[in-house]
């Protein structure tokens, strides 16, 4: 599923969830993590990721620190208590949402 229209609505939750799972993450790491977890089914573009990261940082759901790694500066994002609250509430909402989608589409796991 590389269709942007599906990813767009969930990207904020995906980013917050992944950063919440780890202590800190940086942009490229997030794109790779999504790619690895979904075995390439979901691709997050840089053009979509960075504006979301900056928006969340602006909303104080993420904080950023700069660290020197391999001769270059890297911006790491960490979740804030405010971001943690969003993760908790969106998880419940997502479960309800997907259960609703399940009802509509009668989705079955694909057996390969």
């Amino acid at each position: 599923m590389k269709n942007k229209k599906y990813i767009k609505g969930f990207l904020e939750d995906i980013v917050l969830h992944l950063i919440n799972e780890q202590d800190e993450m940086y942009g490229y790491e997030i794109t790779k993590k999504v790619q690895n977890l979904t075995k390439g089914a979901i691709a997050v573009s840089e053009g979509a990721l960075y504006p979301i990261l900056h928006k969340l940082e602006n909303e104080k759901k993420l904080t950023a620190t700069f660290k020197k790694v391999d001769g270059r500066t890297r911006k790491y994002y960490t979740i804030t208590p405010e971001g943690g609250k969003t993760v908790a509430s969106s998880s419940t909402e997502l479960i309800d949402f997907f259960s609703g989608m399940q009802q509509i589409f009668n989705l079955k796991p694909v057996v390969k």
């Binding site: 840089e46 960075y50 900056h54 500066t73 911006k75």
Partner: peptide, 14 residues
């Protein structure tokens, strides 16, 4: 500068 730092790091990784 803050955006450029991120892009340089991202491009370097790529």
């Amino acid at each position: 500068i803050d955006l450029r730092i991120e892009l340089v790091d991202h491009l370097a990784e790529m």
